[in-house]
Each structure stands twice: as C-alpha cells, then as structure tokens.
Nucleic acid binder design. Structure first.
Lengths: 207, 207
DNA sequence: CTTCCCGCTTACCACGTGGTCGGGATTCAA
DNA sequence: TTGAATCCCGACCACGTGGTAAGCGGGAAG
C-alpha cells in the first residue's frame, strides 16, 4: 500500500517466516469461518490451529475484522483467476461458472464460508456487509450481461428478463449450497450443485 | 405435552400473565435471531426487549436452545396453516407458495430468521440442525410431488427431473432471500421475491 | 560484531455470555 | 383468608471473548 521503498532492493514486507505463517493463518481462518461463521469463530481457535498464540495472530492481522477482510479478498482473487482462465481457455460463461461450483464442491470449507457469511453479512453493520453487496452486484451484473448476449442471439427463453434470469441463477447457486451443506451427513439426498446449475441455465435458455 | 389433567377444568398451563409474556418472548426472540443470528443473540437482549430480566426469561424457556426450538416450531405452524388455507381456498400450489413469500416480504424479521438460521444450522451440532434437515426434506418432497403431477399432465418442461425442479425452486426461494436482505439499504436493486418465484416456476413448466 | 526489526510469547484486562440459586411478589383456587 | 403455584428479580458464577502491554530470542543488514 505504501509508496515508500525499502532502502536498496525491492523486498516483500517482513521475513519469509512471517509471510508463511500469514498464509497459514488465512487458510485456517477460512476453514473455521466456514465451519462456525465469523461471529462464533474465535481468534484463539484460529491461532491454535496454526500453532501460535492469539496475540501472535494479532501481530499479523490487527483485528478480527481485518482478518475477515483478508480471507474474503484472497478467496475472491483465487476464484476470479480460475474463472478468467476457464473463459480464456474457450469455455462457455456458464460452463466456467459450473466449474467454479465443481471445484468448490471439493472444498466444503469454502462453501460453508460463503453460505454462512453471506447470510451473516446481511446485517448492515456486519464487517463484510459492503463486501458482499459489491460482490453480488458484480456477479449478477456480469451474468445479466451474458443473458443479454444470449437474448440477442435469440437463445433466451421468451418472457424472461435477463436481469431476472441472472438473479435466479445466482439464487440457485446460493440456495443449493444450503441444501448441499445441510445434507452433509445424509449423502443420499445430497444434490449435485454443478448439475443443478446446468439444469437451471438450461431451463432459462430456449430449446 | 403431558397427559396429566388439571384437577377439575381443562386449563392451559400457567396463569394468563405468564402465557402473554411467553408470547412476547417468542416474538422478540424471532426478531432478534433474525437480526443477528442465534449464536450472536443474547438472552439478556431478548429479555430486555420484553421488559424482563434474563433469569425471568429462563423461567419460561429453560435454555437458549429450547427457546430457539419454540420459535421455529411456532413459525412453522403459522406458515403451514396459512399455506393450507390458501390451498383449501382453491389456490394453485405454486400460487400458495408465492403468497407465503409475499407475506414474508412484509415481515423482514421472519426472512432474516430463516436465511440466517438455515445457514447457521448447516453445522451438524447446531441445535436447529435436525429441524432444518426435516424441514427441507418435507418441503422439497411436497414440491417434487407437485412437479410430478404437472409432468403427468405433460406440463413439466422436457428434460427436467421433478426432484431437480423442486430443489431448484426452493433454492431460488432461499437464494433470493439473501439478495433481498443484502439490498435492504439500496432499495433500487432489491428483487421482488414473489415475482422471482413465479418466474422460476414458469421457466420450469412448459409453454 | 553491533543494531534493529520481526515474530511471537506470557500475563493481563474489561466485558458479555448462558446458567444457577434463593427469595419476594402476585395470582389463583379452596 | 389461607396456601400453593406461578412469575419474576438481584446477585452470583465460571468461562470465553477481542484486544493490550511488555518483553524476549533470533535472523537480517550495516
């Protein structure tokens, strides 16, 4: 963030050790936030999973809210990068979306993170409230754009507004996460999230 | 619950006053659980909103988990009764569903309750875990049955499994709740939940 | 070798939590 | 009017929370 340059060589902040445990903290925090939510998760628990004390954690992230912001930011970067890579590799927009879902289905912690947090962050004073507002705006925005493209090609089902189609699609992704998580201990009626997304898109497009 | 009968006349448990504050407690708890979630909500806060002390609250509900169970149970009874009434009045199954959504849209507390809690109760050790598992089983079950009926009438879109259609439909309801809650302070891009549900059902049915 | 910063620890703090205990009002039936 | 049940309160408890203060050892840079 600062423009100030280190004395001689351009160097990443801190020592290698510090950067490493910082990453470990982010991993552990992501998992725990997913497991129990942001409010319920404690800094001591995160720290203990990394093998340090909780003031040790606060040395890297000055407060719990700062930790949360870092977790969300990094998580978004990873997903966004993979999504763009799929797009550049020639994949369909919705295919790329489904592939995100598929990848997440293999990492229950991430699914829990976003399902739990997006509900929690519904409160206007939640530290992640603005983050999720912005996130939904961009994702339904770009999905709307995609549906508009399909409509111009005559491939959107008649009588459906592209914006509504987009909202329904992301609603399906969120809603299926809950059904998927809730059925974690009864695998028989556990839905396939990616298949559900594809079925939803198919229902919204014509033919 | 008990079969034991009072001495002479059949009488509701406790005094009138007690039953009244019990109701007040349930109302306040429902709102607060919706606002901040079950874990974050405190018995003292609920009690203070009713104007009593927190041991006073515990006199009516012996523990926090018991309170939660009572809130959910009562909420489900109310919704179920209204739903059945709509059905008996000759309304379409999906119309009746949409009317539930419409009613809830006028009571943000209820929407927050279920959105927050269903995500929270995702954890297997959450006191409401079993409740939500059962709830989803019955609601996607009955919705699946309805879609099967439509399919037999040739009104279900080809290539869509009734069970999948049901899951997508309830996923849309859940997912739209999050988008709706998240946009509470920016009414311009706040979706119409009932309209979304109707659009979703329309997309799943043929013609 | 010295100096400085980084990584992290132990000890501590104020505070909010769910829950318990014992007792004082209030209310109802007899 | 007595007596019992109900309703509710103030005080208390053990515990977990996020955050702070002070310091110590070790690696990096001059």
């Amino acid at each position: 963030m600062t423009t100030q340059a280190p004395p001689s060589t351009a160097r990443a902040a801190g020592y290698a050790r510090g950067r490493a445990t910082r990453e470990e903290i982010l991993d552990a925090a992501m998992l725990l936030f997913g497991e129990v939510g942001y409010h319920t998760a404690s800094l001591r628990e995160v720290a203990s999973r990394v093998g340090i004390s909780h003031p040790g954690l606060l040395h890297h992230f000055s407060s719990k809210a700062v930790l949360l912001a870092a977790v969300l930011e990094r998580r978004d970067e990873v997903d966004e990068a993979a999504f763009q890579a799929d797009l550049d590799a020639g994949h369909d927009y919705f295919d790329a979306l489904a592939r995100i879902v598929e990848r997440n289905a293999a990492r229950p912690g991430i699914v829990e993170l976003f399902a739990t947090l997006s509900a929690e962050a519904t409160s206007p004073d939640h530290p992640a409230h603005a983050f999720f507002q912005a996130r939904y705006r961009t994702v339904v925005g770009s999905t709307t754009a995609e549906f508009e493209r399909r409509r111009d090609e005559g491939r959107l089902r008649s009588g459906i507004d592209p914006d509504m189609a987009a909202r329904l699609t992301v609603a399906v992704m969120d809603g299926m996460q809950i059904q998927w998580l809730l059925a974690a201990d009864t695998p028989d009626d556990r839905p396939d999230m990616a298949e559900a997304l594809r079925a939803q898109v198919a229902a919204l497009l014509s033919d």
